[in-house]
Design a protein around this nucleic acid. Structure first.
Lengths: 336, 336
DNA sequence: CTTCGATTTCGAACCGCTTCGATTGAAGAT
DNA sequence: ATCTTCAATCGAAGCGGTTCGAAATCGAAG
């Protein structure tokens, strides 16, 4: 009913506690005979060293901190997976702080990271973070931005060219003859969404006679998509967009569902482009054309940059890696 | 460039470190004047107490451990969310160990839980865990099983009646006149899947002239579902099942996609029932009938039971809470 | 102006582990 | 036989907080 500590192991093996510690962590300092004895004593007792004590002494936690805007978004989930790949290859674990679109939570996570002495942090900033990041820097905790770029150029980053993504989507629709485009996206405050819209606007500006109507929504769940689909379907054909760029596949799949359930044909009447290329895009009722972001790779790259900074292999200026979009064309934009 | 410790705060506020600690944690012991002085000193310096040190002294981590079989499965993801709800209401955090269908990882997680001194553990056992759970018990760490029942009746648990779930799905198909059923499921070793099949078998046994063909797959991703759909579509109509129970919505949605892409009609030729009622079930090409499990509620209940055991409010025998399935009927089984 | 209890503040021990410097003993050098 | 040298082992000092009991301070009562 009691925890097994290093003392118990020492007693059982008949040695001092420092010898136990050495036998377990630096066996080359201890005679083979004793290493064996200590190891078997530890096994028999089921000894597990206490993380808190090790960490307190060592001053290192073996942890990377990572904040993501919303883990329910598969883009971020994949990014986390990529970061975990890289971290575990280096023998570190990743402590994930899910901000759930909440600025206050995001700040709390950075504080948590200090509490647990993360050795570095991967941050997908959502709210204004400068002062907090400044503080981490002051504490000597390296930071790499993910899915964002530091304007001041002080922090290295791994990001995605959202302007190009929005532009690619819109150009694809324009190329297939669509002219009345709509952009359905999450709140305008989100940089990623703003930039995608901006990209779409650039494409539209380059194309004579084309228009773009922005439509905003708070949440980007599939049922909101359904609602927008039904809403668009209720418009007269002339007033209805014939091409829609969305900021998110959930929204897009719902939108297509809503349109079709009201008798609007996809892609004949309205073509739709999603964003993220989630698993279900390919097997949706009408398979969805989508902009793919290499999330996992981005996460891995960011973690590797962070590890390089931690180990001091690289200076502060690892630069800004920017990934480019890829358009996966499927049925929702297939025919004219 | 240096961490701010309690000593720094003490110095700045002109008091001893014990007064700082008291002012911050038990302000009723300290004069208001000093509490203010200490608080503002702490704020100005950005003092954050080190978790490892607090934990080492207190012997408590403020953490619940939770292992899940695979977090990519939304059923488990929701369960985790439910547990987090309950835990954060009690001021605790949840340390999630994702086993990713890997028995070794699952064991490692339990060891991790000891290292970090979790105050209790929620375990969705996957591999054989008796010895490990026994050990946690020996260390005085309370455990509640989730999505499983302890045969020996020693551990409390929150689970789901998978036999009833399988039965419900099959009965629904039989009631709509289907007779040649198939069951497509993940590996037979998984208890949940075995029990669902068993439930389906019970239903079939009660219905004269009905048959059930089990089909096994390693992974249960949507692309496997597509493959099975195409495979079934290739059979002659007489040889093809007219009703399919799947162990998972991803599989089911893929299956429907595969069938339709090969010209088999759903639900006219083949009716399909999924499991989990994920977000996309409702907006799939053909909206999917599915067995719903109250994942979030299960997670919350389990965490509450665990908290009760930790605080000693309840004895070891909180019993086994079993949730019952609910069938959400949609288009994939609608007409005959 | 003492004396006493209550209140406020402080010093020091301790949580479990790692690590540095010291100790011991055996082997080799002189 | 004495002195080094080196390997193997151990004792004890912290890491950064919390907390207990002692010390200091203060006001009111004697």
């Amino acid at each position: 009913m009691k925890r097994v500590g290093i003392r118990d192991v020492a007693e059982r093996a008949g040695v001092s506690i420092s010898t136990v510690s050495n036998a377990l962590n630096r066996p080359y300092l201890v005679s083979e005979r004793l290493v064996d004895r200590v190891r078997s004593a530890a096994d028999q007792l089921g000894y597990v060293p206490l993380q808190a004590a090790q960490q307190l002494r060592a001053g290192r936690s073996g942890l990377l901190g990572m904040t993501v805007i919303n883990i329910a978004n598969p883009f971020f989930a994949d990014m986390v997976a990529g970061a975990e790949d890289a971290a575990s290859a280096a023998g570190l674990r990743v402590l994930v702080g899910n901000s759930s679109d909440d600025v206050a939570k995001e700040r709390d996570h950075l504080e948590l990271f200090e509490r647990v002495q993360v050795e570095g942090a991967l941050v997908s900033p959502f709210g204004p973070l400068e002062p907090w990041l400044e503080r981490l820097r002051g504490r000597g905790i390296p930071v790499v931005l993910v899915d964002a770029i530091d304007d001041t150029g002080e922090l290295p980053s791994v990001s995605f060219d959202d302007v190009a993504g929005g532009r690619l989507a819109a150009e694809h629709l324009l190329a297939s003859g669509r002219r009345r485009l709509a952009f359905v996206g999450a709140r305008e405050e989100v940089r990623q969404v703003r930039e995608r819209l901006q990209g779409a606007r650039l494409a539209v500006a380059d194309c004579a006679g084309a228009t773009l109507e922005p439509i905003w929504t708070e949440r980007t769940t599939s049922d909101r998509g359904v609602a927008f689909g039904e809403q668009l379907a209720a418009r007269s054909a002339a007033d209805r967009p014939d091409g829609v760029v969305t900021s998110n596949d959930h929204l897009a799949i719902g939108l297509v569902h809503g349109l079709i359930s009201r008798g609007v044909r996809v892609p004949e009447d309205v073509a739709v482009v999603g964003y993220d290329d989630i698993e279900f895009a390919a097997i949706a009722g009408v398979p969805l054309t989508s902009v793919r972001q290499p999330a996992r790779e981005m996460g891995r790259t960011a973690a590797e940059m962070l590890l390089a900074r931690i180990s001091g292999t690289a200076g502060a200026d690892l630069g800004n890696v920017v990934y480019r979009p890829e358009l996966i064309v499927r049925a929702t934009t297939m025919s004219a």
